[in-house]
């Protein structure tokens, strides 16, 4: 039960040595290891959290990009559809216009062709009729017919109204040259005085006369004095026939 003071001192020293050694070999290494591990775990958790945050950010970015892409794609498709529609409409319009123009041109060409044809037919018919009629009249022309023509012309002179007679008289008076009388046939010497007298009567003035034969007149007679002209021939009737033909074919070209 007694205390050995040397033992007490020795035990205190022993205890202090043990404390120092245990601190050196036990507590420090173990605590350091724990700290190191905790640090590592914390850093790993931190890394993981950072990675997760990064992944979230990436995901969000990707989602946004995807949405943008979808939106752009839809917009592009819509735009392309609109453009296609507009282009289609434009092409249709163009085609329609071209078709219209073409059909108009075709109609015009057809009409022109028709008119040309009608004109040609009419010309031909007229020419033929004239030729036939002229030939016929020429064939039929004899003294009796020629006399008849002179009579008709004389009658025509007589039937002139006062103004016409006045104009004729003025023309004859003004003209120094002789009055030219053109006929298809030769006026006989027997017929000439009668015809001259009739003209003088109608004009109410004296005049000298010159007779010319022009076969182109076709059974006609023509008086020409100082720019004044009185004529009668079958050609007038033929002209009337020509107009009638034109009316029937419905073309105005002939009149031109």
């Amino acid at each position: 039960m007694s205390i050995n003071w040397f033992t007490v001192i020795a035990q205190i020293v022993n205890f202090l040595v043990l404390a120092w050694l245990l601190k050196r070999f036990l507590y420090k290494p173990v605590l350091n290891a724990i700290d190191e591990r905790e640090k590592r775990i914390a850093s790993q958790i931190g890394d993981a959290e950072k990675k997760e945050a990064d992944a979230k950010t990436e995901k969000e970015t990707f989602r946004k990009k995807n949405e943008d892409f979808d939106r752009q794609r839809t917009a592009l498709i819509d735009k392309a559809l609109e453009e296609t529609k507009a282009e289609k409409q434009r092409l249709l319009e163009e085609a329609r216009k071209e078709a219209t123009d073409l059909s108009k041109k075709m109609a015009e060409a057809l009409k022109e062709n028709q008119e040309n044809l009608v004109k040609k037919i009419a010309e031909k018919a007229k020419d033929e009729v004239f030729v036939i009629v002229g030939k016929t009249l020429k064939d039929l022309a004899n003294i009796a017919l020629e006399q008849q023509i002179v009579d008709v012309f004389t009658g025509h002179l007589k039937n002139l109204n006062e103004n016409e007679k006045k104009d004729l008289g003025t023309a004859l008076a003004k003209s120094a040259a002789p009055v030219i009388i053109r006929t298809t046939f030769d006026i006989t010497a027997a017929q000439q005085p009668g015809l001259e007298q009739s003209i003088k009567d109608a004009a109410g003035t004296d005049a000298t006369f010159k007779f010319q034969t022009v076969p182109e007149l076709i059974s006609g007679i023509e008086l020409n004095a100082g720019g004044y002209k009185i004529a009668w021939s079958i050609s007038e009737y033929l002209e009337s026939v020509k107009n009638s033909i034109n009316e029937i074919t419905g073309t105005k070209t002939v009149e031109k």
Binding site: Q11, L18, L21, F25
Partner: peptide, 26 residues
């Protein structure tokens, strides 16, 4: 008393040293 204390000290220190020599931070 002193001898047994030394023995205990030795045991404690050797054990600690042996174990802490191969400490891992994994």
């Amino acid at each position: 008393t002193i001898v047994w204390t030394w023995i205990i000290m030795l045991a404690l220190i050797i054990t600690s040293q042996v174990i802490t020599r191969k400490l891992k931070t994994n």
